[in-house]
């Protein structure tokens, strides 16, 4: 390659890199500095965020999970402290999804007070430990229906509340 050509490619590469950094930095400052809202924040800002794409984070409330694989429709409540928001989604629950688990959902908050999620993400803790002697290690892709038949045990799995950081 001639030197001029090399310079040109290097310049183009540099411009592309600077552009990508700016794009990511500006985009993330606007949208990702607060990665998700807590249920209380969502309800307080209901008028402002209604119909807008937002993320909601909290714990799956015990006894709130209703999974109908044949539709498919998954309903549960995301809670944090005293407040809770009802969530509906057609996406299947990931294998680590269970009551008491931290989750983040992406979607829109409706005027009916229901959060319609098109993306469901499970938040797990930084704790790792082998299963107790009596229990089997968690299985991947275990369906939530099987899980509830076995009686939903939630205590043993290290669930983490999405701890709201400093604003």
């Amino acid at each position: 390659m001639t030197q001029g050509k090399r310079r040109m490619w290097a310049g183009l590469g540099l411009a592309a890199v600077v552009g990508a950094i700016l794009y990511l930095a500006v985009g993330s400052l606007e949208n990702n500095m607060v990665y998700f809202l807590t249920p209380a924040e969502l309800q307080a800002r209901a008028a402002e965020v209604e119909g807008q794409p937002v993320r909601l984070g909290g714990m799956v409330q015990t006894g709130s999970v209703d999974w109908k694989p044949e539709e498919p429709l998954l309903r549960f409540s995301v809670g944090d402290g005293d407040s809770a928001v009802k969530v509906r989604t057609t996406s299947a629950p990931p294998s680590m999804f269970q009551e008491g688990q931290g989750v983040v959902v992406e979607g829109r908050y409706g005027s009916d007070g229901v959060f319609r999620a098109d993306r469901l993400m499970v938040k797990h803790s930084n704790e790792y430990k082998p299963p107790e002697d009596s229990e089997m290690p968690a299985e991947m892709y275990e369906s939530i229906s099987e899980k509830s038949e076995k009686g939903s045990g939630s205590g043993s799995e290290g669930s983490t509340g999405p701890s709201p950081g400093s604003p």
Binding site: A25, S28, P94
Partner: peptide, 19 residues
């Protein structure tokens, strides 16, 4: 993918690492 249920999300850790 098998734990969170997704391949990628623009959360601060992932975004700052990509940057």
């Amino acid at each position: 993918k098998p734990t969170w249920g997704i391949w990628w999300t623009w959360d601060p850790r992932l975004t700052t690492t990509a940057i």
